[in-house]
């Protein structure tokens, strides 16, 4: 069996790279965390990897808007390589700040176009929100990252700009019809939540989406923070010695094995 190679892209202000690396390594992958400056100087290096991850944090301080400066930088300096990677069906994940980057560079929801069609805007509460939430998993979703998940799972969120807004209604229905919605904030029983269970006021409580093919996945919650039961507020497990977050990383690693 080949060793799956994961690239975690980091820059000034990236800060969930270490735990993301741990999550992938726990799934048997070998992981490198590389600075964007290095990748800009070694443009084709990205293509050596099987999985690409944009971790959480505050890239460039989230100055101007969350993920904006990094999204522009990638688009302008590494755009064609990242697009090539995406179109080759290799898995890409953007977590929190990474999701903001994917959306703002237009890799989600329509990776072919690389044009920003939706955004992640300020939470309705106008506050940073760090809390655990219930996520309803869309069972029909085409996302390769979220196979084998039960109908509702817990993950923590921690963001102030997580309100998903699609450009228009057509896009929203396209996402629904194309099974591109992966996670929605919900109540314990998978029902429509109110604040704070929906922490940001997202359109249709959307917490995570994927592209049509299902290889590119972006989400506001942090699966890398729920690898072990110990990390859960009540220490719940996924029925194994791991937490549900680990299953997400495992799915991608298994998919490229």
């Amino acid at each position: 069996m080949k060793k799956v190679k994961v690239l975690i892209l980091r820059t000034a202000g990236t800060n969930c790279d270490l735990e993301t690396q741990n999550a992938f390594e726990l799934c048997g992958a070998s992981v490198e965390r590389l600075h964007i400056n290095f990748l800009v100087n070694n443009k084709n290096k990205i293509l050596d990897y099987d999985i690409l991850a944009f971790p959480g944090g505050f890239s460039y301080g989230d100055d101007i808007a969350s993920g904006k400066i990094l999204a522009n930088e990638i688009k302008n300096k590494l755009g064609s390589q990242v697009k090539k990677f995406a179109l080759s069906s290799r898995p890409i994940i953007g977590i929190c700040n990474g999701f903001q980057v994917l959306v703002k560079m237009g890799l989600l929801p329509e990776s072919e176009l690389c044009d920003q069609k939706s955004t992640l805007s300020y939470n309705d509460s106008n506050k940073f929100e760090c809390r655990w939430v219930y996520l309803k998993t869309e069972q029909k979703s085409s996302c390769i990252w979220t196979k084998n998940l039960p109908s509702v799972i817990n993950l923590p969120v921690a963001h102030s700009e997580g309100k998903f807004i699609p450009k228009d209604k057509e896009l929203l229905s396209k996402l629904n019809k194309g099974n591109q919605v992966v996670f929605r904030y919900s109540t314990k029983d998978g029902k429509e939540p109110k604040y704070p269970l929906c922490p940001n006021g997202s359109a249709e409580n959307i917490a995570g989406i994927c592209n049509k093919k299902g290889n590119i996945f972006g989400l506001m919650p942090h699966p890398e923070r729920y690898i072990f039961p110990l990390q859960h507020p009540r220490r719940e497990s996924s029925g194994s010695e791991y937490g549900w977050g680990k299953i997400i990383f495992q799915n991608a690693v298994n998919a490229v094995k």
Partner: peptide, 15 residues
């Protein structure tokens, strides 16, 4: 003004 230096960097990234 911390945002200011980020904007200066980002403008360079725009080419």
């Amino acid at each position: 003004d911390t945002v200011s230096s980020s904007v200066v960097k980002a403008v360079k990234d725009l080419g």
